[in-house]
């Protein structure tokens, strides 16, 4: 890989990757500290981006500080490459950084995500950038930053355990299904961002570098590869992930996170992989789900297959 030799081509009305170099340096320094203190939220001088706060500005700033001309970028939202915001962010980086893009998880060197971790295990050297709306896992328990910072500083996490235990006494189990808090490297309680708890186990000992950017709240945090990441639980109520009685209607997968797709207003529905690339890849390899031949289901599948082509039309 020689990024300098490969000539970058982008919309030169803007700096490469939009941010000026001073801002990139500031973010890069924050990223290095974040990696050195896994799970700790590093404050950073977040900038206004040409995308609304809450729509991925933190992830975009991290991606912009990391990415180079030789990178290949994948952007997903809800696990899908073709959701509008994923398309919009991918277009942004095509324009301001001229990077190659892909939908294939294994081909991407940088993956920006909102709400999911790809099903396919990541490799060493890949960077997974999470968009984070609320980086503070304790915020719902304590609205004040001055207080939550103290709680992290002294590792006072009793309140969080009490909250989870209240669920157990009320419902018989912990009623948190996404943004399920994790303990990183035995020290910091961290928000995994609003991924479903189904994805939590993938964070532990991942081979890739996991970076988290919260633009509005101006925080960056990280999980280096091969790091302990435990979902909070109790001995008598161990952490569990979601399971579905159904297999994916299109590719038949039984081990992926499924979205419920409403097919009509008479209760018709199907369950399909939220990770669109994972699902398409399986179908290409000949895997078939129970509704793979159904016209309505096939219409649904097509909308994701053609997204790359549509994007090229728009350039």
């Amino acid at each position: 890989m020689n990024a300098v030799a490969k000539k970058a081509s982008w919309d030169e009305a803007y700096n490469f990757a939009y941010l000026d170099e001073q801002t990139k340096r500031m973010i890069r320094r924050a990223l290095l500290k974040a990696v050195a203190i896994p799970g700790y939220q590093v404050p950073f001088g977040g900038r206004e981006m040409p995308l609304a706060y809450g729509w991925g500005t933190g992830g975009m700033q991290v991606t912009a500080s990391v990415i180079g001309p030789s990178d290949t970028l994948k952007v997903i939202d809800q696990g899908a490459d073709d959701t509008t915001n994923a398309v919009s962010i991918r277009r942004f980086f095509k324009r301001v950084a001229g990077v190659a893009t892909t939908e294939a998880t294994e081909e991407a060197s940088v993956i920006q995500t909102r709400h999911r971790i790809p099903e396919k295990p990541l490799k060493e050297g890949q960077v997974l950038v999470y968009q984070v709306p609320q980086p503070e896992p304790l915020r719902k328990l304590e609205p004040r930053e001055t207080e939550t910072r103290k709680m992290h500083g002294y590792a006072e996490y009793g309140l969080m355990h009490v909250r989870l235990y209240e669920d157990i006494s009320r419902f018989g189990h912990i009623a948190t299904t996404y943004s399920y808090p994790v303990m990183v490297n035995g020290r910091y309680v961290m928000s995994p961002s609003p991924i479903p708890k189904f994805d939590n186990p993938k964070m532990e000992n991942n081979k890739a570098i996991q970076l988290f950017g919260a633009g509005r709240e101006k925080r960056i945090y990280a999980i280096p590869p091969y790091t302990r990441v435990k979902s909070l639980d109790f001995d008598d109520h161990p952490f569990e992930v979601q399971r579905w009685p159904q297999a994916c209607a299109l590719c038949g997968a039984r081990n992926s996170y499924l979205d419920e797709v409403v097919l009509d207003d008479k209760g018709g529905r199907m369950f399909v992989c939220s990770d669109t690339h994972f699902c398409a890849d399986r179908q290409e390899k000949g895997h078939r789900g129970p509704m793979a031949a159904d016209p309505a289901a096939r219409a649904f599948a097509r909308s994701s297959e053609t997204s790359e082509q549509k994007e090229d039309d728009g350039r």
Binding site: K24, R25, R28, L32, V35, V66, G125, I209, P224, P225
Partner: peptide
């Protein structure tokens, strides 16, 4: 700078 940063990010991560 981008290449050097990625190298040091990798070095601190791995």
């Amino acid at each position: 700078a981008q290449v050097a940063f990625r190298t040091v990010l990798n070095a601190m991560s791995y």
